[in-house]
Simulated assay, not measured.
Amino acid sequence: MKTCACGSKTPYDECCLPFHLGQQLPQSAVQLMRSRYCAFVEKRYQYILDTHAKAFRQGLTINLLAQDAPEWLGLQVITAQEAKNQATVSFKAWYIVAKQIDVIYESSSFIKQDGRWFYTEGEQMTAPLPKRNEPCVCNSGKKFKQCCLLRC
């Protein structure tokens, strides 16, 4: 059984798949953010579009989302602050493109409308790559040098 890419360590079909299929709604901004990351991994671009607040899409389309899709390595949630109808979640989403490891380090904003959470926009930040002996970004439990660094 396939483990969910969101980092929950539970099976995908019990974790994010029900969100992706519209059978359940994320109950928090963190849950939405994790399910959106998983949707990128699983190439479920319609879900990403559907959970992006319309007023903030700025021409975003499924075709744009699918262009140059990276190999996703892992997600780290750093902080989360949630109020009644708005939230901020900072995270690192690690990936490989053209044999180079990189990261999206973002402080994302979310709003809750009609009982549903939506992503609005994010502030990009910079993060250093992990050092060779640090834990790998894919959460394998191995050192970075013995895991994802070998893939580059």
Rank of each mutant, 00 (worst) to 15 (best):
P70I: 02
R132N: 12
T61Y: 12
A83R: 09
H52R: 00
L49S: 03
Q31T: 11
S109I: 00
P11I: 10
R132Q: 14
D13M: 14
P26K: 01
A69H: 13
K112A: 10
A5M: 08
A39D: 06
K143D: 07
A80Y: 12
K43F: 01
E134Y: 04
P128A: 10
Y37S: 11
S109A: 13
K43L: 01
K131H: 11
R34M: 14
Q23H: 15
C16T: 09
Q31D: 14
N133G: 04
G59N: 09
Q113F: 00
L49E: 07
K99W: 11
A83L: 09
R34S: 13
L32Q: 10
E71F: 01
A127S: 09
L21D: 15
E71D: 08
T61A: 00
F110H: 01
A98C: 08
G59P: 01
K143Q: 07
C136H: 04
D13R: 14
L60R: 03
P130T: 09
N63R: 11
R44G: 03
L64T: 01
C148M: 13
F19H: 15
S8T: 02
D13H: 15
R151H: 00
Y105E: 02
T88Q: 15
N139V: 04
K112G: 06
K131Y: 05
I101F: 00
V41C: 11
T120M: 13
K92E: 00
Q23K: 15
F56D: 10
Y119A: 02
P70V: 04
P70H: 09
A5Y: 03
H20L: 00
H52F: 01
L21A: 12
P26Y: 06
L73K: 04
C147L: 13
Q67W: 06
T79A: 04
D114N: 15
I96V: 13
Y95S: 10
Y105G: 00
P128Y: 05
Q24Y: 04
K131R: 13
G59Q: 07
T88E: 14
P130W: 09
Q76E: 12
D102H: 08
R34T: 12
L149P: 06
K2C: 01
Q27C: 05
